[in-house]
Amino acid sequence: MAGGWSKDGAEQEQIENTLNDAVQRARSQLPHGASLKICEECGDPIPDARRQAMPGVRLCVACQGELDKKQSSVSGYNRRGSKDSQLR
């Protein structure tokens, strides 16, 4: 239900755009190419099992975990802060 100046289906379009942005961000972060034997970040060896399980890996488990923690703080559009949700 759209109201005011927004067109019908605007809410669903916003949700789909937010989802598509998140999917594109995740796809861009997938490893590609040949796996490295040495971690780019710390220089420790990357185990063969990790390199076989995830082709294109460039970081060891510890460094990847730290990177994942930093990236988890990135969020998409906060729809809860929109004016419409405050009126409900």
Score class of each variant (00 low, 15 high):
44 D>H: 08
58 R>P: 14
65 G>Y: 04
53 A>L: 14
7 K>A: 01
70 K>T: 08
8 D>W: 07
17 N>T: 12
1 M>E: 15
40 E>P: 01
10 A>G: 08
51 R>G: 02
3 G>L: 13
87 L>P: 11
58 R>W: 14
66 E>T: 00
83 K>Y: 03
50 R>N: 07
49 A>M: 13
50 R>I: 09
11 E>K: 08
56 G>R: 00
1 M>S: 10
15 I>P: 11
58 R>L: 13
66 E>C: 00
73 S>W: 01
76 G>S: 05
83 K>D: 13
42 C>K: 02
3 G>K: 09
56 G>L: 02
70 K>I: 04
63 C>K: 00
48 D>I: 06
30 L>D: 11
24 Q>A: 13
72 S>M: 11
68 D>E: 06
14 Q>C: 09
68 D>C: 11
76 G>M: 13
11 E>R: 03
80 R>Q: 15
71 Q>T: 10
60 C>V: 00
19 L>V: 12
50 R>G: 00
49 A>V: 14
27 R>Q: 12
75 S>A: 11
69 K>N: 03
17 N>A: 08
23 V>T: 15
45 P>V: 05
71 Q>M: 10
54 M>T: 03
20 N>D: 04
29 Q>G: 01
23 V>D: 03
86 Q>Y: 04
78 N>H: 07
19 L>F: 12
77 Y>F: 15
32 H>S: 14
23 V>K: 12
44 D>Q: 10
25 R>V: 10
66 E>H: 01
51 R>H: 13
8 D>E: 11
55 P>T: 00
16 E>A: 15
78 N>S: 11
54 M>E: 13
51 R>I: 05
21 D>G: 05
28 S>K: 02
83 K>T: 08
80 R>D: 13
20 N>P: 02
70 K>M: 12
59 L>C: 05
65 G>M: 04
12 Q>K: 06
23 V>L: 15
27 R>K: 14
51 R>K: 10
57 V>A: 02
28 S>C: 07
63 C>E: 03
58 R>N: 07
80 R>Y: 11
61 V>H: 08
38 I>Q: 01
56 G>W: 06
58 R>H: 10
